[in-house]
Every structure is written in C-alpha cells, then in structure tokens.
Amino acid sequence: MNATKQTRDWYPFVGPFDPCPPKYVKTYVVPPNQFIPFQPMNLPQFPLADALRLGTLWPALFSPYESKCRPGEAQKG
C-alpha cells in the first residue's frame, strides 16, 4: 500500500449567516499517480487474485475509496 495519505483536507470559509449547517472540513482525493512521473521497472506486485479485485497489479498505484453512503442510507428506488 502507498504509505502516504491519499486525501487532503481544506477548511472553507464559514459565514455567520450560512443557511445550512456548515461543513468545517472538506476533503479531496490525490491518487498516487500524481507522484510517479514514469513508473520504474520491477516495482512490487500484488498477488494476481488481489490484483484482479483491486484493479491494479501495483501497490504503488492502488488507491482505496470508501463510499460516503452508509449502509441502509441510500434512498429506496
């Protein structure tokens, strides 16, 4: 796994008259491809079964993402 954190936080302005409850922290994703200009040869590889499931052979390129939708939270269609 990539040791570096793959998200960044920022703190938007919160006004005294905002109509909705404020979000104090906003987060965006910075995937690991941003830090590799050209992939070097012979990087470590996932086992093939893991690679298929994860979508990449290379731990250095793996980027996890978790849904912001909690179980049971999605609307009924």
Binding site: T56, W58, F62
Partner: peptide, 17 residues
C-alpha cells in the same frame, strides 16, 4: 465501481508516461 475507479488511475498514470 471501485475496480473501474482504480482503472482510471492506472490509465492516467500511463498517459502521463
């Protein structure tokens, strides 16, 4: 969908190369 998302990251890597 997570698989497809990861593929986008790998593709962007390859285009950068």
């Amino acid at each position: 969908l997570k698989f497809l998302r990861e593929r986008e990251i790998v593709h962007a890597m390859r285009f950068k190369e």
